[in-house]
């Protein structure tokens, strides 16, 4: 957690009244800092906020966030990265799965304040420009979704699953992908997609 007056504030130029004013200076000072700051510090919302500096999809952000704010709500409402979905808000469905420092986490159970200094990757950060990640392409090729609402979480989970160590059997894919619910029930096609996506990732 970063209290308001933490040592980092001066270095980053983050202030209670928002970052935009000082942002140009700070960005110049910290060359790679591509800060997009959500204007969270309206008068009504300003009390008790904490500062978080987090890299999301390669872009560095310095944000003032509500200490109660989850990473999920912060991504969606402050950074307008709405690809990450809220299916249950209590860690039971997997729709909000993102990567934090390369590991799959449930962003609804992760307070934004705990991501200070970390690297977050969301579904928006998976493709290489126009070139889809092999797992994304595999989900299209195998019809690994219907409504698509759980799909960002499924794909983020699948990519991390392969990184954790490839699945050796279809049953292992089923087991290791079972933290992500798909109510449309595309499960057999998700297994096909993950098997192919894993092969293409090698």
């Amino acid at each position: 957690m970063n209290p308001d007056n933490d040592a980092g504030q001066g270095r980053s130029g983050v202030s209670r009244r928002g970052f935009l004013g000082a942002g140009a200076v700070a960005a110049a000072a910290a060359a790679p800092l591509m800060a997009t700051v959500a204007d969270a510090s309206t008068a009504a919302e300003g009390e008790g906020l904490v500062t978080v500096r987090v890299t999301v999809n390669g872009d560095r952000h310095a944000m003032r966030v509500d200490p109660r704010g989850t990473l999920l709500d912060t991504l969606r409402e402050k950074l307008e990265l709405t690809g990450t979905k809220k299916g249950c808000d209590r860690g039971q469905c997997g729709a909000c799965t993102v990567h934090v420092d390369g590991r799959r986490v449930l962003s609804c159970l992760t307070l934004a304040a705990t991501t200070n200094g970390r690297e977050v990757t969301t579904i928006e950060g998976l493709a290489d420009g126009e070139q889809l990640h092999p797992m994304q392409q595999a989900f299209i090729d195998h019809d690994g979704f219907q409504c698509g609402f759980c799909t960002p979480g499924q794909i983020m989970s699948a990519v991390a699953m392969v990184d954790e160590g490839p699945a050796r059997t279809d049953d292992e894919i089923r087991e290791r992908m079972s933290g992500n619910i798909c109510r449309c029930s595309a499960y057999p096609f998700i297994v096909d997609a993950v098997r192919d996506g894993q092969e293409a990732m090698r």
Binding site: K85, T122, L132
Partner: peptide, 15 residues
């Protein structure tokens, strides 16, 4: 293949 597939696998489809 679904014509909305790319939007759905990239998080660009807006619900």
């Amino acid at each position: 293949a679904r014509v909305d597939g790319r939007l759905k696998v990239t998080g660009a489809a807006r619900y």
